[in-house]
Lab assay of single mutants.
Amino acid sequence: VSVELPAPSSWKKLFYPNKVGSVKKTEVVFVAPTGEEISNRKQLEQYLKSHPGNPAIAEFDWTTSG
């Protein structure tokens, strides 16, 4: 189950709350306009370098507050 949070234009930000008793931590995933899922800052940096014209990296908020 995921919750969609505010994201930069043409992107989606999905929040996957951890299940009770789960060892997996809460996860935030950005979905690029191409449909590619980005789950960490390093991936995001690589994606933005190879896909010019996207929002600046500073516009991506990895917190769950939206």
Rank of each mutant, 00 (worst) to 15 (best):
N40F: 04
I57H: 04
V31C: 06
K13M: 03
G53L: 05
A7T: 04
N18I: 10
N18H: 13
S2G: 13
E37L: 15
S39D: 09
K25L: 13
T26K: 11
P8N: 05
P17F: 15
P55V: 05
V29C: 06
K13N: 01
V3T: 08
V1R: 05
R41Y: 11
L5H: 05
F15L: 12
N40Q: 06
K49M: 13
V3L: 10
N54I: 02
D61I: 08
Q43G: 07
K25C: 13
E59T: 06
D61K: 07
E37P: 08
T64W: 12
T64E: 08
K25M: 08
E4V: 09
L14M: 09
Y16R: 13
R41S: 10
P6Q: 09
E4C: 08
V29A: 06
K13W: 03
G35F: 02
E27W: 15
G66R: 05
W11G: 01
H51P: 00
P17A: 09
F60K: 02
P8E: 05
S22A: 10
K19T: 11
I57F: 13
W11S: 02
G53R: 05
T26L: 10
V31F: 08
T63Y: 07
A58S: 14
Y47L: 00
L5W: 07
A56C: 07
K13Y: 02
G21V: 06
F15W: 15
L44S: 00
Q46M: 11
G21M: 07
F15D: 02
N18Q: 12
T34M: 02
Q43E: 14
T34R: 02
E36W: 02
K19Q: 14
L44A: 00
A7N: 04
Y16E: 03
E27C: 15
S2Q: 09
S39R: 15
Y16N: 06
Y16M: 07
R41N: 09
S9T: 13
L44H: 01
K42F: 12
L5C: 08
N54M: 08
I57M: 12
T64I: 12
V3I: 14
N54E: 09
F60N: 01
A7D: 04
A32P: 03
P33L: 02
P52W: 04
I57Q: 07
W11E: 02
P17Q: 12
E45S: 09
P6M: 07
F15G: 05
A32T: 07
G53I: 04
Q46E: 15
V1C: 14
K13A: 03
P6S: 09
H51I: 01
V31D: 00
L48V: 03
Q43A: 10
E45A: 11
N18V: 11
T26P: 15
E4Q: 10
E27L: 14
T63Q: 07
S10V: 06
Q46I: 13
Q46P: 00
K42Y: 13
A58D: 14
S2H: 11
F30G: 00
I38N: 00
W62G: 01
L14V: 08
V31I: 15
N18D: 10
N54R: 02
K12E: 04
E59D: 10
V23M: 12
I57A: 09
G21R: 00
N40E: 07
R41Q: 11
L48N: 01
Y47E: 00
E27N: 12
T64N: 09
N40R: 04
K42E: 14
N40G: 07
K24R: 09
P33A: 02
Y16A: 06
I38T: 00
N54C: 05
I38A: 01
G21I: 07
V31P: 00
T63F: 06
T64M: 09
K19E: 11
K19P: 13
P52F: 04
P17Y: 14
T63N: 10
H51V: 02
E36K: 04
K12A: 08
S39V: 14
K19D: 09
I57P: 09
G66K: 08
N40H: 07
E36Q: 07
V23R: 03
G66M: 09
T26R: 12
V20D: 15
A7M: 05
S9I: 11
F60I: 01
V1T: 12
P55G: 05
S2E: 08
Q43F: 06
H51W: 04
K42R: 12
L14H: 07
T34D: 09
E37T: 14
S39Q: 10
K42S: 14
S65Q: 12
P6G: 07
S50E: 13
E37C: 14
V31Q: 05
I38C: 04
S65H: 11
K12N: 05
E37V: 15
E37R: 15
E36H: 08
Y47G: 00
A58W: 15
E36C: 04
P33Y: 02
L5M: 12
P8D: 04
S9P: 15
P52L: 05
L5Q: 07
V1G: 11
P52Q: 05
P6R: 09
K12F: 05
L14Y: 12
P55K: 02
P17T: 15
Y16V: 09
P6I: 07
V20P: 14
S22N: 11
V29M: 07
P6Y: 08
V1N: 13
E59W: 05
P6H: 08
A32S: 12
P55W: 11
A56P: 15
K49N: 14
W11P: 02
K24T: 15
K25H: 15
P8S: 04
Y47H: 03
P6A: 09
V20S: 12
P55I: 06
P6E: 10
W11N: 02
E4A: 08
S9G: 15
Q46S: 11
P6L: 08
P8T: 04
W11F: 03
K19N: 12
S22M: 08
G53H: 06
Y47Q: 00
P55H: 06
V20A: 12
S22I: 08
K49C: 08
V23H: 15
K25Q: 14
V31W: 05
T34H: 03
Y47I: 01
Q43R: 06
T34W: 02
D61W: 05
F60E: 01
N40I: 03
Y16K: 09
W11K: 02
T34I: 01
R41W: 10
P8C: 06
E4P: 07
Q43N: 06
P33S: 02
L14C: 10
T26Y: 15
K19H: 13
F15R: 04
K49D: 14
S9V: 12
V20C: 12
T64V: 14
V29F: 07
V3C: 12
G35K: 02
T34K: 01
G35T: 01
V28N: 01
K12D: 03
P33G: 02
F60M: 01
E37D: 05
Q46C: 07
A32G: 01
F15Y: 14
L48I: 05
K24L: 15
K42V: 12
P8Q: 04
K19R: 15
L48R: 01
V1E: 13
L48Y: 02
D61H: 07
S22R: 03
S9M: 12
G66C: 13
V1I: 13
I38S: 00
Y16G: 04
K19V: 13
K19G: 14
P33Q: 03
